[in-house]
Amino acid sequence: MDFQIQYITPDIKLSTYDDKLFKTETVFEFHMLVWFISGETKIIQADKTYLFKTGDIFLIPRNHLATIINYPKDGLPHKAVVMHLTTERLKQFYASVESGHKTICRESKIYSFQSHPLLKSCLASLIPYFEMEGTFPENIASLKITEAISILREIDKDIDTVLNDFEEPGKIDLAGFMEQNYMFNMPLEKFGYLTGRSLSTFNRDFRKIFQTTPQRWLTQKRLELAYYHLKEKHKRPSDVFLEVGFEDLSHFSYAFKKQYGLVPSALT
């Protein structure tokens, strides 16, 4: 695997990936603004799948579960400029501007800006700095991030409902959340955090609701979803195992055969 990340500041980076694919399941601590230079990315959320290609610009909000699969494309690596919009930075920004009545948007979605010329110009202007020697001046980095936030607010009048939300996840309906997000292969601590619970409270509440352990329930639900994709959607096992929360094809095939008595390929 040839995966490189080059930082000019802790909040601005250039990522390059030149292997077959790179897959991760994560909850981002900060909002992430991404501009694709080359390659392709599939982002899978509980109720929607996004496909982004060369030139696309999008914003991934913080504290939302997502499976991200990055692919090289057309002989070029997967390459992207990524800017973190941290809570601290956004608090400083909104302390100096009038944002009007604050309405919170907790909708789990990715915000796509296609190849908007203002955002593209802002992010493309960072490229020369990755080629410089020495330290990238913090005052210039701050100006670039402020510029990006200002452009986002100009082209999407509702973006304040996302960027100006600094609340942490509160205690929510555990059963509903898990039924919607079981396909994400996250540590149980993360599931607990996103439902407003400590790990011990999460485990206790989970057993009370589902009458089994989280690990057993998650495996069962992921295998059921895989069976549906294979049987009804006629997908290949190599395409399914990543999307339903398994880390490798051999483990998926073993668990599937143990559950259903046949290998996944028998259904395609």
Rank of each mutant, 00 (worst) to 15 (best):
Q4A: 14
Q4H: 13
Q4I: 15
Y7C: 10
Y7L: 15
Y7G: 11
I8P: 08
D11L: 10
S15N: 09
Y17Q: 04
D19K: 10
D19W: 06
D19P: 05
D19F: 09
L21S: 09
T26S: 10
M32T: 14
I37E: 10
S38N: 02
S38V: 03
E40A: 07
I43L: 11
I43P: 06
I44M: 00
T49N: 00
Y50K: 00
Y50C: 00
K53I: 06
G55I: 05
G55Q: 02
G55F: 01
G55A: 01
F58G: 03
I60K: 07
T67C: 01
N70A: 13
L76R: 09
L76E: 13
P77C: 06
H78M: 09
K79F: 14
V82H: 14
V82C: 14
M83T: 14
T86R: 04
T87Q: 15
T87I: 14
L90V: 10
S96F: 11
H101T: 08
K102I: 12
T103H: 01
T103I: 13
C105N: 15
R106C: 11
S108H: 10
L118T: 12
C122Q: 12
P128L: 13
Y129S: 13
F130P: 03
E131D: 14
G134E: 09
T135M: 08
I140E: 15
I140N: 13
A141G: 14
E147M: 10
S150L: 15
R153W: 05
E154A: 05
K157G: 07
D158H: 07
D160L: 08
V162R: 11
N164L: 03
N164G: 01
F166L: 04
F166A: 03
E167D: 07
E168I: 06
E168K: 13
P169A: 08
G170H: 06
G170I: 12
D173V: 04
L174H: 04
G176W: 01
G176I: 03
E179C: 03
Y182F: 14
M183H: 03
N185Q: 11
L188V: 04
L188Q: 12
E189T: 15
K190N: 11
L194A: 06
R197C: 12
L199H: 09
S200I: 14
S200M: 14
S200F: 12
N203A: 06
R204V: 09
R204F: 12
D205V: 13
D205Y: 09
R207A: 05
Q211M: 05
Q211D: 10
Q215T: 13
K221H: 05
R222M: 00
L223P: 00
L225Q: 03
E232Q: 06
K233A: 00
H234Y: 00
H234F: 02
P237A: 04
V240G: 02
L242E: 09
L242T: 01
V244L: 01
E247C: 08
L249C: 07
S250Y: 07
S253R: 02
K258I: 01
Q259G: 02
G261L: 09
L262H: 10
L262Q: 07
S265W: 05
A266V: 02
T268K: 06
T268F: 11
